[in-house]
């Protein structure tokens, strides 16, 4: 309270000081209880709950270094297993397609020592070399790949170093593809009678 005596020409400070010092009355003692007993928790919609879940901060859990190391080793192991199967399924197409009882496993062999890379393309893989790359046989230097094929007539060729396309020099039949390139022809029936002496060799 300002220590100023009463006067007939009060300053603004005097008046505002007195307004600040006006006593307040206390609400009834049971006021809080009377209000809160009528307060019911608000229902929250699924959408609101989901949104709040999305924007709520997460608490990072505590983890022991030993547990973290074991977890990492397990994850690396799983990754290795996954990658192994992934490579098997994609680099060796016969592995997946050979599940079909009618398919025949055919070994494509190309004798082209100067090639750095080779792949087989044909009607059976829509002329796409991905996953049909051949592997060099270290004993005789030839390029080889085993592919499971359905019975029927297949046109194919080899692609050397991603640039040069050649027909199979060992093939019994060839045909022109209409664009000036010759493709090899392979026919597989259910008994695999292709005129070849080696069932698995082309």
């Amino acid at each position: 309270m300002k220590n100023k005596i009463s006067n007939e020409d009060p300053s603004i400070d005097y008046l505002t000081g007195m307004i600040a010092s006006l006593p307040d009355e206390e609400p009834p003692g049971d006021f809080m209880q009377a209000v809160m007993q009528q307060i019911i928790p608000k229902p929250i919609s699924f959408r609101q709950r989901f949104w709040r879940f999305l924007i709520a901060p997460f608490t990072v859990i505590a983890i022991r270094p030993l547990h973290a190391a074991v977890t990492i080793v397990l994850l690396v192991g799983l990754l290795f297993v996954f990658k192994t199967f992934w490579i098997s399924d994609n680099d060796y197409p016969y592995a997946a397609s050979s599940k079909n009882a009618n398919t025949k496993l055919v070994n494509f062999i190309l004798d082209y020592p100067s090639a750095k890379k080779a792949a087989v393309i044909g009607s059976f893989n829509h002329w796409q070399p991905e996953h049909y790359h051949m592997h060099r046989n270290l004993s005789d230097g030839t390029w080889q790949i085993a592919v499971a094929l359905q019975p029927g007539r297949h046109a194919y060729a080899f692609i050397i170093d991603n640039t040069k396309i050649i027909a199979d020099p060992r093939a019994l039949w060839e045909q022109d593809d209409g664009f000036g390139t010759r493709n090899s022809i392979l026919t597989i029936d259910n008994e695999y009678d292709n005129g070849s002496s080696d069932e698995n060799r082309i």
Binding site: F31, M32, V35, M36, I39, P41, K42, I44, R52
Partner: peptide, 12 residues
């Protein structure tokens, strides 16, 4: 608003 109605007592 998240359902903690009892905290309204602080505002009251």
């Amino acid at each position: 608003l998240d359902g903690n109605a009892q905290e309204y007592a602080i505002l009251v």
